[in-house]
Design a binder for these strands. Structure first.
Lengths: 194, 194, 194, 194
DNA sequence: CATGAATGAGAGTTCATTCAT
DNA sequence: GATGAATGAACTCTCATTCAT
């Protein structure tokens, strides 16, 4: 595949991503993508065989970007609680974003495609996040900012709450206050009261 | 619609439910239901106009049954922690059930149909569960079984964790151990250690 | 068929007529009629086999009423030109009536059902109208009101103009002025100028 | 749409036209056209969305051809009465043609689609024909062939008679004699008797 | 007579996918 | 590589018509 083709492939993925954000996963047809990309019907098939492959690719790229983002935050000389607050704030923004959001599409995709554990980017991302959180909590405990006798459990708990909020956001709906309350509850469970 | 029709309507709903459990929401066509029910193409349309209406009806019935189930447990002379353990065990069973599970279909349905807050059965169920849990926790606190200075927050936290587990179960997958760990973490956060 | 049945049959015909006036002939289904009549699906079939039979019956009744109307005007002691003016005014009203009009349905019915000449109520009505007009013109000629050396031809011509106006009314559309101009042209062709 | 497609589009229109001539407008389905054209079900939808659009297109083309035909007759060095006779003869042929006739389909189409005055090809054609006739009559009057003190009224009258004959042809039926009588009546009303 | 549930044929429409150019 | 016309499977939905009650 030449230089040019790689760019086109990239273009298709980016365009398709906006469609998946708008319409979810199952509602998107090859036709939708062809039209949005302004390419020929057959042309798309030179790059991808179906919407599943396209979305899988998008997810993979997405995952890499998220990694960068997540890891980028740490290493600055900030306290553990400051970093945690930052991370949660990031999550809050994500949760409340109505558009530009692949959550629904991602859920739909995984409902349909039971991926093997080790290939499941979602799982990998989840586990990584747990690790990051765990490290952070441990750090906080050492500096005396946090109180926690089960950092891994706590990290996992936080992640499931975030997952629950994400699911709720797209089904029963959530308000900013809902998120704030929940994140506050998490922080209060950790922070050492004086 | 006569006596007989009501039975048939019921039969359609039950049959459709098994299909929704198998295939989710979006994958189910009127044709699927027609074939599963062994009725004529037009026959189904006498009872329902589309799969959305059918699923909405199933959800409503489902919701009623769940209510009964949930409220049935309380009122026995058991301690708060026993009741809580029972409830969580119930949830665990639900979470681990691969088939006979409307979770995916329900998610898909609500992704597609943004229901007004007060008509959203899922939300109503959620809020009710929070209330039940809150009451239970308060009771436990009074009897000295639990320690908790924010029962409502704690109840909500538990519910979001459960929601997160449900979402995870259908996307990244969960094992029995995952669930046990999580439920244990919740219980330990409440129970007064001696 | 009992007394009661005859009434019901009558009721069906009247109700169906309003539907045919609204929707034309081809757009009307047995279902439409069943629903408008508020009777059972099978019930309608006890009286009529299809919309064709129903419309044919309506046409027949209609034809009888029109006859009465047409013949009712003559016999009063009025001059030929007064009577002609009256008849044309009647036609004008008919032509301009948007609703309560079987014209479209009637056309559609005859497009589909090539009726034998002698059974064609439309033709019978047409021929009768020509006769009436012819007699009227002859009378007018005798009294010196009209000038015409071919009363039958003139009568036929008038009828075709009226038919043309009717067709135009339902296709290219006509205004009141269009009709007035046309009827005026007809009258002026007959009336002896002083 | 490439060169090739234009030909296919043309082919579809021509094929569809024969079907409309056979079956009228409302009786024709997309399936009918697909089968007559020997193309695939989906293929037709690449060119047209529904029978209405197809018929509208046919009408438009038809209209253009008719224009050419109509205007082609004039300009030869023939007398006004010769030209008029020719035109009426043309109309007669049209009226008596049983097959190869879009009259019924056209009526049905306009019954269903009330077109805005200025977009109504039928009306435009009608008005143009009136103009042509009017000019012809005026010419005849000048050369002394015709007697007429209201050429426009006369032209319109002729057109409505022709319209009436067309409607009659497809409902009550007409014979060649009927048409001859009517056309003769028109000519005699114009021609100066010696 | 009357009901209305049930059937099944058939129309409309959309897309994934292929393939000649 | 790229195009876009073409195909055909699949689904939705509506009715005329029948028939057991």
């Amino acid at each position: 595949m030449g230089e040019k083709s790689i760019q086109k492939r990239q273009f298709i993925l980016e365009t398709a991503k906006t469609i998946f954000m708008e319409k979810g996963y199952k509602n998107v047809t090859m036709k939708d993508i062809v039209e949005a990309c302004n390419i020929s019907r057959g042309g798309l098939y030179l790059y991808f065989d179906n919407t599943r492959d396209i979305f899988a690719e998008i997810l993979k790229l997405e995952s890499q970007e998220t990694d960068d983002l997540f890891s980028g935050k740490i290493g600055e000389n900030a306290t553990a609680s400051e970093i945690l607050a930052l991370l949660l704030k990031e999550q809050k923004k994500e949760l409340l974003r109505k558009k530009n959001n692949l959550a629904v599409a991602t859920y739909e995709y995984f409902f349909e495609n039971k991926t093997a554990k080790k290939d499941n980017v979602l799982r990998i991302r989840f586990d990584e996040a747990v690790s990051v959180l765990e490290a952070l909590i441990e750090e906080g405990v050492e500096t005396g900012e946090f109180y926690c006798d089960n950092p891994k459990g706590c990290a996992r708990n936080i992640m499931y709450v975030l997952e629950g909020l994400k699911a709720a956001a797209n089904t029963i709906g959530i308000t900013e206050k809902t998120v704030d309350d929940e994140l506050m509850y998490i922080m209060q469970g950790l922070i050492v009261e004086e």
